[in-house]
Write a protein that binds this DNA or RNA. Structure first.
Lengths: 209, 209
DNA sequence: ACCTGAACACCGTTCAAGT
DNA sequence: ACCTGAACACCGTTCAAGT
């Protein structure tokens, strides 16, 4: 029975990495972010806590990689959304895909925003994944600005994404119920409809919004 | 030297409550939410951890009371902001007071939103404090809707507050830098300017936003 | 080389014991 | 009645020791 100590090589490092990430994901999904502990993840894959530190810098690092995968999946979920001339319609389609994706992964998605990478050492690969999601929103906003690469879509995509995050995070933590009886979806739809109307009004009147 | 055990009565329960709340506030303000532990608060007021549980249900309860005070102060900071016929101007004045208040209490204000009251047992007095802040925003939005008590200002105030929360929370956690080079203030100003333009456009065109 | 598991320095919370 | 401080059941992280 001494076979449990020392080198095991039941799994390669890559396999272990996958197992750990998958186990972490299942733990968060099932029991929430608070249940994600080094001991829980290690236990779920049948290894000791120390082994995790052979795969990841620390628990923050594990979460960062988990979040990276989720950003990829969000990009995939939004990619291919039809884009037409009606900006409002474009955005509503994206919004519903966005909310539906998040809704099915509430605990996991919360982690993306709750988790603060310490010492602002955000990896480049992580920034790229964020940028990809934003660029999809930019494409959908383009018709309202009559240009694809301008400052308008660029800024508006970021303002809307940050704002949607606010609405959704309040909603998923139950704080929105303290403010309103409307649903997260209704609030988000109002934001987008009104904001897009604002963009178009500014264009018509020639105001600099 | 046996005077340190048992009944002390150096302070009344009310005094102790004040001391604990004040100490907690200083700890968060100085060292961030992670430094707020029962042992730290107890140590700062010269009592043992157990004593805190004579004053508060638990640490969550202490935070809830701390947040309540902060909401009151936010209400005071926004109250008395001049309200005119120009909705956009009204909101910009409020926005700058809002951001300035938060900016000086970043760690504390983060706690208001990061802290989730478990079991959705939000006290009534807490809801009232939230409502008071919202009502100030409603007043500022009224001219755009040509009415004070309608559904329009009611809904828009909530949508804007939730959206601003998203922008600010991403900004204060450093995540906004990952998305844009603009400041929190610039993002917030764009949101408000565009959203208000949207409200007014919808009114003119008779659209139901 | 890889993995363990005890150890370190922490948590929130409880509660018997003391004054 | 009030307060203590040890105790319980946890944390993240490290690292000497084993294979």
């Amino acid at each position: 029975m001494e076979c449990k100590v020392g080198r095991r090589s039941d799994h390669s490092k890559e396999e272990l990495y996958e197992l750990a990430l998958q186990a972490a994901r299942e733990i968060i999904d099932a029991d929430g972010p608070r249940a994600l502990t080094a001991r829980n993840v290690a236990g779920a894959i049948g290894y000791s806590p120390g082994t995790l530190y052979n795969l990841f810098e620390n628990l923050d690092d594990l979460i960062t990689h988990l979040n990276g995968r989720l950003l990829d999946e969000m990009g995939d979920a939004l990619a291919g959304t039809p884009v037409g001339d009606d900006t409002s319609e474009n955005l509503m389609l994206l919004l519903h895909r966005y909310l539906s994706f998040i809704g099915e992964r509430a605990n996991l998605w919360n982690l993306v925003f709750e988790h603060t990478i310490p010492g602002d050492r955000v990896p480049t690969w992580y920034r790229r994944k964020v940028e990809k999601v934003i660029s999809i929103l930019e494409g959908a906003l383009a018709p309202a600005f009559h240009c694809i690469d301008g400052e308008g879509p660029n800024r508006s995509a970021r303002v809307l994404l940050a704002s949607l995050h606010g609405i959704w995070s309040l909603g998923s933590s139950g704080k929105l119920d303290m403010m309103t009886s409307e649903t997260t979806t209704e609030m988000a739809e109002n934001l987008i409809a009104t904001y897009v109307a604002g963009i178009e009004a500014c264009r018509e009147h020639g105001n600099a919004c």
